[in-house]
Nucleic acid binder design. Structure first.
Lengths: 331, 331
DNA sequence: CCCAGTTGTTGGAGCGCTCCAAATGGTTTA
DNA sequence: TAAACCATTTGGAGCGCTCCAACAACTGGG
């Protein structure tokens, strides 16, 4: 078993460059007031030794890590990839680096991931699609800025899209196309599901239409099941609005199988504008959330607490927009 | 601007519990030979103070971080989510925690992410879908165990599926179905693309068939473009094997638009068994890579270097399998 | 009843870095 | 020519933890 050699330290660089440890520290941090000659000598020595500052020692001494911890609840959900791009953009611009941690769709994992970040003493924590109860997050948020994205979580900073407005956009669009019998397949207890449902009901009633909602749970199979039940129940709706794209695809599939033409006979709309919706083979009309922008705002909220010392929890609501593709048509 | 209060340290816990700092350390690490009474007293004090060990201080003192750094090249690609599950499973079982970092599909980001992990002094690094040149990775791998997943990278440990075998499975299956005119839409320079192509050519020749390959690049649009060109060129193939699922869906779409029935007129096969392939609306026949297993093996390679001190680079090849869905049929 | 052997507990050194007060040395000013 | 000033440089004291040698308090055997 070979002994892995100890990585070089600041001391090693200092000796090789013939200066003090403190001077090396100054150079590594690009501090001013270091003579050009010394700076060059230190850089040279560092390069020759392949020196790399020890992040642990640095955080310990600085008493801050300059990193933001991001808890990604579901790596399979690409929704968050764009959000992370936005977070990354702003974080980098402010001298922070990102560290991610996954949770496997359970409260417990999520809290464990947060716990790990607290041990690392990250400067702020972002939870994408939180599952854990608000109080738990709020507790964690008491020792470090914490922002939740995608689900409204009391007691902490939140960034979400306006689900009610999204549903409203869908209803208005469908009504404009002449649809009257519109059904909503809801998302059960999933994030934002209830607000999408409420938005649907309100918008329908505002138009004097009957808001028919059938249960679902954000999965393809639930969308298919709901559609199948709907078709069996007699006179089918002329438009179906599913709580997310996956359920919409399930419904779409069921309609096709039953011999209906989409959008000729029935229009179908989803929510989230995932990659699936964009597949030209599917071309699903859906609602887009400005994910990257959500990421930016998330980071802004964190920076706001970090730099301005804001204490009160804030909620930022971004505006969704309709993306028309090929599963919707006038009646 | 409110002053965030300093988190409690081991010293604080020690004072509150009326013991020494060292004893608290022993309790936190679940060391044996600590009396039941003291252990309880320390745990109580720690809980009351909401004490959390400082990971930076710990890594510094232990001279190891007990964490594995995972570089995820493309968060949008869910392929790696399952791999990470496998890595996580083995890592947890061996007392390591995971930390992720994203790279945005460029060499530079990837190397920066690796660099960051080196500064954190992670115990091992895993690169999912490496882009950077082998020498660079090899260099990084000289100071810490490094495993590459998905692309063959000289000089470092690698876990990949047997792409040639995967292509062979496809050809054999299609030939068994009676197909003779089979076209491969390749993946350009993407990971594994060339081996898939080679496997296709070899298998076709073994069957005495003419291996026709058209260029592509792993995207939906390239699949559509290739298919469109193929259709214009006259007598269409009876089967199309695309280098990945996305390209296969592009081809599928183009065929449908052109009025061909899939699988009645033409069979289509993809590669990777992504979530898209599994959508019942698509039901793409494809090749599955045992992703979770790949994750496990990845971690095993890392542990092998960590615990056994292995130095020579090793490549682990896992076996792909055919997943038959509804885009293929006998001719 | 003493010494060896256990089991439990402790202070101190040290991990690699930053920060600070103080030292250095060259220049300018009175 | 001495004093005052400036830009640089430096040693030392931590940051919060682990590890180790040493110590304390018991136990049991001869």
């Amino acid at each position: 078993m070979t002994q892995r050699q100890r990585p070089p330290t600041m001391q090693d660089v200092a000796e090789r460059a013939g200066v003090s440890r403190a001077l090396v520290s100054l150079v590594m941090r690009d501090a001013p007031n270091v003579s050009v000659a010394r700076r060059a000598a230190v850089r040279k020595a560092a390069a020759e030794l392949d020196y790399r500052p020890n992040a642990a020692a640095r955080s310990l001494a600085e008493r801050r890590s300059n990193t933001i911890g991001v808890v990604v609840n579901d790596l399979h959900n690409t929704f968050f990839a764009d959000v992370i791009d936005g977070i990354h953009e702003v974080a980098m611009g402010n001298g922070y680096r990102l560290l991610l941690n996954t949770a496997w769709r359970t409260d417990d994992d999520e809290l464990k991931a947060i716990e790990a970040f607290l041990e690392y003493r990250v400067d702020a924590i972002v939870v994408l699609g939180p599952r854990a109860a608000g109080e738990k997050l709020e507790l964690a948020g008491s020792s470090v800025p914490l922002v939740a994205v995608g689900s409204i979580t009391p007691g902490v900073d939140v960034v979400v899209n306006d689900d009610e407005r999204g549903s409203e956009l869908v209803v208005e669009y469908l009504v404009d196309l002449g649809h009257r019998r519109i059904v909503h397949i809801d998302g059960g207890g999933g994030g934002g599901a209830s607000r999408r449902s409420v938005g649907f009901v309100n918008a329908m009633e505002r138009h004097g239409l009957d808001p028919f909602v059938v249960p679902g749970d954000f999965t393809e199979s639930s969308g298919a099941a709901a559609m199948s039940k709907l078709l069996k129940a007699g006179e089918p709706p002329t438009a179906v609005f599913a709580a997310n794209d996956l359920a919409a695809v399930g419904a779409l599939d069921e309609l096709t199988k039953a011999g209906f033409d989409v959008p000729g006979d029935v229009s179908v709309v989803g929510y989230d504008n995932t990659a699936i919706a964009a597949l030209s083979h599917i071309g699903l009309t859906t609602i887009n959330q400005p994910r990257r922008e959500m990421g930016r705002q998330t980071m802004e909220l964190a920076l706001d607490r970090l730099d301005q010392g804001r204490k009160a929890a804030v909620t930022r609501v971004v505006t969704p927009e309709l993306v028309v593709r090929r599963t919707t048509a006038a009646i």
